[in-house]
Design a protein around this nucleic acid. Structure first.
Length: 100
DNA sequence: GTGATGACGGAAA
DNA sequence: CTTTCCGCCATCA
């Protein structure tokens, strides 16, 4: 079907799917959900983010948060370890566990 | 159609 | 450790 502006692109579905695949207590970076185009993930979460999408589990590569304390509290509720004002990526990042 | 911005990443200094 | 610069694609004015 042509003309389907309401339907998300394959890239959007891939990004959303990866975010939905993040289990509680862990986080992923924008680069991990959208390799090569990290800003796309941000736009998807800003405008195309479903209500059931755990966007709070998506953080920056350095562990810093995009939405500040609000997001931090949501992550701590799920058991995400923190180091100061940043997420303990070394322990909470899924890709990091793969190497471990 | 062009230009600037953004829930970013990575490298360099 | 911090700060600065460039590149990324989509959306907005």
């Amino acid at each position: 079907m042509s003309g389907v502006p309401r339907e998300p692109s394959a890239v959007h579905r891939a990004i959303v799917a990866r975010i939905r695949a993040i289990p509680p207590g862990y986080v992923r970076t924008y680069g991990d959900v959208s390799p090569g185009a990290p800003r796309l993930a941000g736009h998807v979460l800003r405008a195309h983010a479903p209500d059931d999408l755990p966007w709070h589990r998506v953080v920056r590569a350095d562990g810093s948060l995009a939405k500040g304390a609000w997001q931090r509290q949501a992550l701590e509720e799920e058991g995400v370890p923190f180091l100061g004002d940043r997420v303990a990526m070394k322990a909470a990042r899924l890709d990091a566990l793969d190497a471990f």
